[in-house]
């Protein structure tokens, strides 16, 4: 309490001084805002708040990080805001769904920005994306899931909750119907619990472990590399027989390798980007951070910003025919 109070007084004093005699980079003086593309209460919110608690300590000037939830369209709204209107001085960073990067090639009419223009700070997870059903559901296997007349719930059309379910339906021939408009994962889960819908995809393993209440059960997973923890769960990618479809599916799920990415707006000065990247790398290596993450049931498999930028570059510059097929599969 004392430390955080002192910390707060100190940063408030800094902010007030900044108000009177402003100088130096904006983000080093006052608080940094971490905008999270989802409503509070879901997996992204949990990861964002973990980062907000620690990242400031690894940045020059040790700024306070204030969380703001800017939910809408499966974090596409925030991505668009970051691409367009946010200050590129390091005072605002964002945590979005990594699937918005893929949407820039598969749904350019909605995601009309260049994912490569962002300055990526780093990503928190490389984690499978699960499709889950309520515990009481009669669906036990992938075959039963594909044959069932279900409704799958999602947030926005470019969100993982939509894209992963659409991919499953289109690449493997599912019969279920897709519904959009829920406000965050917590609301999708609740709708599943009250029996309105029967399936949720795009539930990252990390969030499922952190927030799963024991009422939901995974049926299968989307992932490029099956980790040890989910070895027994069927991998949807392995069930796709058509080679072209598989390639397109790989593009659609390619973003899973850098889930929970943090970014700075386009045009941020390189020195600021470097400071954030160094801060991020130091944070994820810090034992105190790792212990806190473990305490909050958040599994980590971080990637540095440079690596994230590299993956995105390779993902969005694939052959046009692959993009076209991927777009069809994700609709």
């Amino acid at each position: 309490m004392t430390t955080s109070l002192q910390e707060m007084m100190r940063s408030s004093l800094r902010a007030s001084l900044a108000l009177l005699f402003l100088s130096g980079p904006a983000w080093a003086e006052g608080a940094v805002t971490l905008k999270i593309g989802y409503a509070p209460g879901g997996g992204y919110d949990a990861v964002g708040r973990l980062v907000a608690d620690h990242l400031g300590g690894f940045l020059p000037g040790r700024p306070d990080i204030v969380v703001e939830n800017v939910d809408g369209a499966g974090s596409l709204k925030l991505a668009k805001l970051m691409a367009g209107s946010e200050a590129a001085d390091g005072s605002v960073i964002a945590l979005v769904n990594s699937s918005v990067t893929i949407a820039t090639v598969t749904r350019p009419e909605l995601a009309d920005f260049d994912a490569r223009s962002f300055n990526w700070i780093g990503s928190m997870n490389d984690t499978p994306s699960l499709c889950v059903v309520p515990n009481a559901s009669p669906v036990r296997s992938v075959e039963e899931l594909l044959a069932a007349d279900l409704i799958a719930g999602s947030t926005g059309k470019t969100s993982a909750t939509y894209v992963m379910a659409a991919l499953l339906r289109n690449a493997l021939g599912g019969r279920f119907k897709l519904v959009t408009g829920f406000k965050g994962g917590a609301e999708v889960n609740l709708a599943m619990e009250r029996g309105e819908i029967g399936l949720r995809c795009g539930y990252s393993l990390t969030s499922f472990q952190a927030l799963g209440t024991g009422l939901l059960r995974p049926v299968g997973q989307w992932t490029m590399n099956v980790p040890e923890t989910t070895r027994d769960l069927p991998s949807f990618l392995d069930l796709i027989e058509d080679a072209a479809d598989r390639k397109a599916a790989e593009l659609v799920i390619g973003n899973l390798a850098f889930d929970n990415p943090l970014l700075l707006p386009p045009g941020t000065p390189q020195a600021t980007v470097d400071a954030y990247r160094a801060g991020f790398d130091a944070m994820v290596a810090d034992p105190a951070f790792q212990a806190d993450a473990a305490g909050r049931n958040i599994e980590l498999s971080p990637k540095p910003g440079e690596k994230v930028a590299e993956i995105i570059d390779s993902l969005v510059s694939v052959d046009k025919s692959v993009i076209a097929r991927a777009a069809e599969l994700a609709q």
């Binding site: 209460g41 939830n69 917590a186 209440t213 024991g214 909050r296």
Partner: peptide, 27 residues
Amino acid sequence: AFGLPGSATMSILLGAFMVQGLVPGPA
């Protein structure tokens, strides 16, 4: 009961739940 905030204030309170390691729901 569900981790579903009934108001904007509750949204942030939910963040405090997470920090305290409390998972809303049956527990």
